[in-house]
Amino acid sequence: MGRTVQCVKLKKEAEGLAVPPLPGPKGQWVYENVSEQAWTEWQIHQTRLINEKRLNLLEPEARQYLTEQMDKYFADEDVDAAEGYMPESK
């Protein structure tokens, strides 16, 4: 196991990312506060949003929308969901 972080999403200590996933202060914050597992879960959710809403990541508005959704996701606030998506029952 590599470095660990106190993950803001999982609310527990977990394995951290190997490198910051984004440039700048936002990437550094994610690196210091988000576990590898939580980041992977966010990427899956983000992919659903991109596909469902047909976001063009070349458009600044689409990138801003995803940044806002990511901030909400890691703050445990309500985030948009892909319509018709049903989470797997555990």
Rank of each mutant, 00 (worst) to 15 (best):
M1T: 05
G2W: 03
G2L: 04
R3N: 06
R3V: 02
V5F: 02
Q6L: 05
C7L: 03
K9T: 03
L10G: 03
K11Y: 01
K11G: 01
A14R: 09
G16L: 07
G16I: 05
A18K: 15
P20M: 08
G24W: 12
K26M: 12
G27E: 09
G27I: 07
W29M: 14
W29G: 00
W29T: 07
V30M: 11
Y31E: 05
E36L: 15
E36M: 10
Q37G: 04
A38R: 08
A38E: 09
A38G: 06
T40P: 00
E41F: 05
E41M: 08
E41G: 01
W42C: 09
Q43S: 04
I44F: 01
I44H: 10
T47Y: 00
R48N: 12
R48F: 03
N51A: 13
N51C: 03
K53V: 05
L55W: 06
N56E: 13
L58T: 09
E59H: 09
E59G: 01
A62I: 10
Q64C: 07
L66A: 02
L66I: 02
Q69T: 02
D71P: 00
K72W: 00
Y73H: 02
A75Y: 02
D76A: 09
D76T: 05
E77T: 02
D78F: 09
D80Y: 01
D80P: 00
A82S: 14
A82K: 13
E83Y: 03
G84Q: 08
Y85M: 02
Y85E: 11
Y85H: 15
M86K: 15
P87W: 07
S89F: 05
S89N: 05
K90E: 10
